[in-house]
Structures are given as C-alpha cells and as structure tokens.
Design a protein around this nucleic acid. Structure first.
Lengths: 205, 205
DNA sequence: TGACAATTCAAACAAATGTTTTAAACTATA
DNA sequence: TATAGTTTAAAACATTTGTTTGAATTGTCA
C-alpha cells in the first residue's frame, strides 16, 4: 500500500467522520502513519486532498445502485421506483456492512451540513447524479405541465425526509432516549417516507 | 447600551450566523466595538458567552407562540393545531420581520447541525419546550396505545420536514438555481408539510 | 477632591493548525 | 553503480484564535 493510498484512506475516514473543516492534517497523517509533509508532497494542500478523497470515494461502483427513473409508465411502477430509491438512499446511510457507501454518503452529508469551500463544485459533480433519478421519478408522478419549481419542492421534500433521519439521530437520542431505531424501525421509516412522499406527489388529485 | 449588552447582541448575531465553533471572539468584539478582553471580564470565556447569548435569545416572550397541543378533541381541531404549529415554526425560521425569533431558531438550528460542547444542556433547556406541544398534537392523532417510539418517529418526521426547507436552501439554490422560494411558495410548503404529516398520522386507518 | 473599585485597552501568551523548508533515506531503472 | 525520482523526517513558519496580563482610564462615593 503506497503512502498516497494510505493518506487517502485515512483522509476518507477523517473527512467522513468530522467533515472538512474539523479534519486536521496531523490527525490524518497520524492515522495513515505518514509525515505531515507527505500531504504537501502528494496533494499540495488540504483542499486538494479533500477533492481527491471525494473523488476516490465517489468513483466506486456501488453494489446497490439507485433506480434510474427512466420509462415509468404506471402508478404502480412509480411507487416501486420511489420505494427503491428511498430504500437504497437510506440503506446507504445506515447500512453498517457497506462501509464505502456509508463513507461516501457521510461525506456528502457533512458537505450538506457544513459546506466546504468547494461545496458547489462537489454538488455539481456528485450529488446531482444521485438526485437526478429522483427528479425523474417525481416528474413522472406530476402532471406533464408541472413547473420545475414545484417539481423541486417535491424532490427536496423527499430528500429532506431521508436526510433527516440520518443526521438527527443525535437529537432523537437526546429527546427520546432511543439511541438506535434498529432494523425493524428502519423498514418502518422507509415505508413512512414512501407513503408521505406519494401523498405529496398526488396533491393534484 | 452597556458593554455587556453590546457583546451579547453581537454574539447573538455571530452565533446565529455561523454557529458556535465558527464564531470567533475577535469578530464578535469587533462588531460590538469592544476590546477582546471584555469577553473574559464579563463572561469568563467563549462558552459562557454562548450560554448567555442562548439564554438571552430564548428567554424573550415571542409575539407568535406555538400552540399548546392541549385538549384536542376532534380531527378538525388536530389539523388546525398541527397547521398552526408548522406555520409558526416555519415562520420563525423564515420571517424576516421577526429578527429575534429568527436568531433564536437559527441558533437552535446551528446546534442541531453542529452541536457544541453544551448541546445536551441547551436541548433540554430549550428545544424540548418547542417540541413538547408537537408531541402532544401527534399523540392526539395516534391511537391511545401508540408506543412512545412510534410517536417520536412521527414527531421527528414532521420536525424534519420543517427543518429541511430551512437549512437546505443552499442545496436547493445550487441544484435548481432558485434562490428564494418566496412568500407564495412558503404557504405552499406549509400546506405541503401539513398534508404529508396528516397522512403520517392517519396511517392506522 | 481623593481613594478605591470597576472597566477598558493594547499587548502578549499559548495552543492548534495549514504549510513550507531542508536534508536525508530509499527505490527503481538505465 | 549512478542517477533521478520518490519518500520520510524534523523543524520551523505563519496564521488563527481563546485567553491572560498589567497598565490606563473611568466611575463612584465618602
């Protein structure tokens, strides 16, 4: 394992744990077992390292992939696609076994919560890809003449529901004393998000 | 206006803008027009200042208050209470005119997104108060034997919907090019959240 | 007014952190 | 082996930031 790889690995760990601004070069280097100067040598600076870490984590082919959202022709199909999108997105956030996926999503979440100086660039490069299928699914559920504005409100509503459960586990824990919703509640939550989202999509009825 | 007041004012401004960790003593003092040592003199340290700022902003009597959630006897009443809760909570987040309310909610939001070292203390002291009525409203909409766990899932789902629109305006803007949903869309969003929340509450049907 | 306490100020201190320098050690390859 | 490229190491540098110091100023009250 080369020094560069060791650094990237430790950086992904650190960045996904505490986000860009709170991550420190010295911490990353310590975990990687390399000298701080190695960062400068291999990546110029912290920001470039972050970019590389993001690239490295996002370029992987995920074993579970989000549905494309293409060719939706029936309500049933739409529901299936939406269910699948939510399930995959949520799974990526919670699933313990898929550490790489989790790291990616955690890095994205940290960007959402605490945008770095290159957040715009990263959003355009990566998040757009995950959200694109959701936009297609939502569009399929709305009248053909729906305004882009209204479509996005629905999209963000769904996205928001998913994200909330992830980043507010702390609040949940604090207010309720529940520290882990667990597998059983995970399924409940997915269904809950789906049901509410479908209502949102059928508002024109 | 005393030095202490000037500091508190500037601190509230700074903390609500960038949160605890990113706020700097020097910035606060510059805006307040006082010397950095004044912090130590009047508040011991940054953390104590934060505590005081939070107290100061939370202790005010808000002109618009959240519905209590007591004595809900009909479905219509429940819907009205829930609508009111969402409207007030969202208004507090967006309303330009109510700067104090906005600052409070922004400070709370920053704590949610980026918990400080005294977040537990603050949640227990303040957020619990705002969430309590929502818990009552939600409980009224569920069967009497509903588990606390399930109640909280519903509560957090609603809370999440509200919060999402606030803190993800940046993402919204980035992905859509829309920078401000505006008054018209604000009402749309409130209705949207209400409708979806009601579906969530009626899942037992 | 004069003494004492409260307050303010400029400056310095200490720690954290991103970055750079300089030299040495290692490695692959011609 | 010799050379160029790569890697490591220790130290220093520059900046930011929370905190403290000690003197100067202001306010209060007998």
């Amino acid at each position: 394992m080369t020094t560069k790889e060791k650094i990237i690995d430790a950086a992904i760990q650190e960045f996904s744990d505490v986000g860009y601004s709170k991550a420190t070069i010295r911490n990353i280097c310590q975990h990687a077992g390399v000298n701080v100067a190695a960062i400068n040598y291999h990546f110029s600076n912290k920001c470039e390292l972050y970019r590389h870490a993001f690239d490295s984590v996002c370029i992987e082919d995920h074993s579970i992939s989000l549905p494309s959202g293409e060719n939706i022709s029936s309500q049933t199909e739409l529901e299936e696609f939406l269910h699948e999108w939510i399930r995959v997105f949520m799974t990526r956030m919670f699933e313990r076994e898929k550490l790489e996926d989790q790291r990616k999503i955690r890095m994205v979440m940290n960007e959402l919560l605490n945008p770095s100086e290159i957040s715009d660039e990263l959003f355009n490069k990566y998040l757009r890809k995950d959200v694109a299928p959701l936009i297609k699914i939502v569009s399929a559920g709305l009248p053909p003449d729906a305004e882009q504005n209204d479509i996005l409100i629905k999209v963000f509503a769904i996205l928001g529901k998913c994200i909330f459960y992830f980043f507010h586990r702390r609040v949940t824990a604090n207010l309720s004393g529940i520290t882990d919703f667990g597998r059983k509640n995970f399924e409940k939550i997915v269904i809950e998000i789906l049901r509410e989202s479908l209502v949102g999509l059928n508002y024109q009825k």
